[in-house]
Design a protein around this nucleic acid. Structure first.
Length: 702
DNA sequence: GAGCGAAACGAGGAT
DNA sequence: CGTTTCGCTC
């Protein structure tokens, strides 16, 4: 283990072979990668085409590209810099036919996945356990990412059986329209490299040096990709910080970084512990919090700068008061808006802050939240465009067949669908033949025929036309603007449509790629990509989105038990260590000033709830001082809970009583022993997944 | 089948 | 509280 300080990047970057750089927050992590790339090109004379640098966001890749070009003094860098998912898409476009799949494939984004899964859950036989579409997608995603492990033979509990059934149906639906989802972009790439040694060798030769940023957030499939590509030359250079691993819910495996040295025995391991970003008080507070974690390699960051204002804590009466305090404070302190970020755990918290800022006439931007490309208007248009490329895309057709309304309602659609299922045909094929079907209403028949003509015409136009004019003529022909104009917020929605057309025009100019590539790329665009920190506005975003960014002044709001750390319903299984890391990430975004806040009560789902101050505030210790003229509320003791029920007696159908929710019935259980969880449907109609050992439950006899 | 108001349902984080 | 679905009427 080699610990390095200022100006010693060169030592890190020189050797060949596997290397891990453990770089604390604000220690110049990106700089290490830039220096390494520059050294390889400048000193070793490596052709940039042989370099592959993988990141987690487009934003990080763009930043890297910009800085490397600057460092090398060139206009354009020909190294491959981008996200894992973009790299997967890039290689699959070239090689997916080796897996016996069509080269023209659709990329599903999370909304596509969700709407498909919603339908599949709805169509489930009534004997299946009740699961939510989200749960199912998460379950499938986690299992898929394991990539190389065979399926466990036995089916497990009721919920798992349902998940497996949904998995099969989900992939049937995807295969039918040759679509791939986010995980497939990685998993199919792993398969390609594993099953086709010639392909693996080709890309090993092409990419002589592989660099991975944010290594702590890699999942198993990403780990395999890095490993498979670097086998042979061993030049795998990864940079990360185990204290900033905040994506386990997305499948990230912190063990990839914790076990790197064991996994690559000849690896060199470096530490960067000097922080150039934050003042001493901020760093002390953040260190104090994260030092409560046990599962870490252990680093002690120290500040380059000695002086600095103390970290403050403000306790508000409720959420409104908290938001008001933040806004009044940043005005009082005369911070320039672009110096300030307000960070929160959940997107729902942004509303109060937006209102408070609007009231004072302060400019702000919300990063994340409802994504531009996720808007209904854009999804509608995109689904039409997909249909032009692939008329057999039933999923897209389902969405747009009656948008705007053209007289094909639920009843007609069900008839068409039943017919398609019976004959095993795509829906569009059935629509083509519909004129001969006299069981359908004349209105629906005519509408369907017009729809077929529309798609055919535009598909023809797509062959010769550029993207923007094509999209414009689509919008024209379906009368989409007129349709939107009849609704609320019409100006805003028209603006979104116009913005989409202009983004098509930009793509026409910049990429010179076709409609299909455009549609595939769209799925990978994220909202943080075009975030511009130079705008004269206060930045509002989640702690997750803030990773990799820095601000002069940071307000971290909602430091309450249940919110940060977040605990969902009665799911006591929450991973507090990851929440602590998230808190650490948020705190270390601040350069000069950090203010923490919480509220004594907060409105949730329209109901007011009492809150307790987060344990993280206390853990930050003496580095944090209460805000002037407001005392800190006495930390209330947690109310004693009713004795918990015996997990062994929990079976499907067991009648129970919950201290808060009242009587209910166990729908299914999962896990075992003390970790047994039960999904319970209460008489009130709501269901909850409870840790039996900890929830205030009693078993009712009979 | 479309359109509207009422009721039910639902929000963790996001490539 | 905000959004989606339901169910009734035209």
């Amino acid at each position: 283990m080699i610990t390095l300080n200022e100006g010693q990047y060169a030592a890190v970057t020189a050797p060949d072979g596997p290397a891990l750089v453990l770089a604390g927050a604000g220690s110049g992590k990106t700089r290490v990668i830039i220096e390494r790339l520059a050294w390889l090109v400048g000193e070793r004379g490596v052709n940039p085409r042989h370099l592959l640098a993988l990141t987690f966001t487009n934003k990080a890749a763009d930043e890297m590209r910009r800085r490397l070009a600057l460092r090398l003094g060139v206009d354009r860098v020909s190294a491959w810099l981008g996200t894992f998912h973009a790299f997967g898409l890039f290689l699959l476009r070239r090689e997916i036919d080796r897996l016996g799949r069509s080269k023209s494939f659709t990329v599903f984004d999370d909304r596509d996945q969700l709407s498909l899964m919603k339908r599949l859950v709805k169509d489930l036989p009534s004997t299946c356990a009740a699961v939510s579409p989200r749960e199912a997608l998460t379950w499938i995603s986690h299992l898929k990412q394991r990539a190389d492990e065979p399926l466990a033979g036995e089916a497990g509990d009721d919920a798992e059986k349902t998940f497996r059934l949904l998995w099969a149906r989900y992939h049937e639906a995807l295969d039918r329209i040759s679509a791939v989802d986010f995980d497939d972009l990685l998993v199919l790439l792993v398969r390609l490299l594993k099953e086709h040694p010639d392909v693996q060798e080709k890309y090993q030769r092409r990419y002589r040096h592989i660099l991975v940023d944010e290594y702590q957030d890699t999942n198993h499939a990403q780990y395999l990709i890095a490993k498979l590509l670097s086998r042979g030359h061993g030049n795998l250079f990864v940079v990360g910080d185990e204290d900033q691993s905040i994506y386990s819910w997305r499948g990230a495996d912190i063990n990839n970084i914790l076990d790197f040295a064991r996994d690559f025995p000849d690896a060199l391991v470096y530490r960067l512990e000097q922080n150039y970003r934050s003042t001493k008080p901020i760093l002390e507070a953040a260190n104090a919090v994260v030092s409560h974690n046990r599962n870490r390699l252990g680093k002690k960051l120290w500040a380059a700068a000695d002086a600095g204002e103390a970290v403050r804590f403000f306790l508000a009466g409720d959420g409104e008061e908290e938001a008001h305090f933040v806004v009044a404070d940043l005005v009082k302190q005369r911070f320039a808006p672009k110096q300030v970020a307000v960070l929160f755990r959940t997107n729902a918290q942004s509303r109060l802050l937006e209102e408070a800022l609007r009231k004072k006439g302060i400019h702000y931007i919300v990063v994340g939240g409802i994504k531009f490309y996720g808007r209904k208007e854009i999804k509608d248009i995109v689904c039409y465009l997909r249909l032009l490329v692939n008329p057999a895309d039933d999923e897209s057709l389902r969405r747009v067949l009656n948008v705007p309304p053209r007289g094909i309602g639920g009843a007609s659609f069900e008839r068409i669908e039943a017919y398609a299922t019976m004959r095993g045909l795509p829906l569009f094929q059935v629509l083509r033949e519909i004129e001969t079907d006299d069981t359908l209403a004349m209105r629906a028949r005519n509408a369907a025929a017009a729809f077929v003509r529309l798609v055919d015409d535009l598909a023809l136009e797509a062959k010769t036309s550029a993207l923007a004019p094509l999209t414009e003529s689509l919008i024209e022909r379906i009368g989409y603007r007129g349709y939107v104009e009849k609704s609320d917020e019409k100006d805003f929605r028209i603006e979104i449509i116009d913005e989409f057309v202009s983004s098509c025009a930009q793509y026409d100019v910049a990429e010179g790629k076709g409609l299909q590539e455009f549609l595939q790329d769209l799925a990978l665009v994220s909202d943080t990509d075009d975030y511009d920190p130079e705008q004269p506005a206060v930045t509002l975003m989640t702690c997750h989105s803030a990773k990799g960014l820095e601000f002069d002044y940071v307000y971290l709001v909602g430091l309450e038990e249940g919110l940060l750390p977040l605990v969902r319903d009665y799911d006591y299984d929450a991973d507090v260590e990851e929440e602590r890391r998230l808190c650490y990430v948020a705190m270390t975004r601040a350069r000069k000033g950090l203010t923490l806040s919480a509220a004594r009560s907060r409105v949730l789902y329209g109901r007011t709830e009492e809150r307790r101050v987060s344990r993280f505030v206390e853990e930050a210790g003496t580095a944090v001082s209460p805000c002037a003229d407001r005392g800190r509320a006495p930390a209330k003791k947690k109310a004693p809970e009713a004795a918990s029920a015996d997990p062994a007696k929990m079976k499907t159908g067991t009648r129970v009583r919950h201290a808060k929710f009242g009587p209910g019935t166990v729908m299914y259980t999962k896990g075992s022993g003390d970790k047994l969880k039960a999904r319970i449907r209460f008489q009130t109609g709501r269901t909850a997944l409870l840790m039996v050992k900890q929830a205030p439950l009693e078993i009712l006899e009979g």
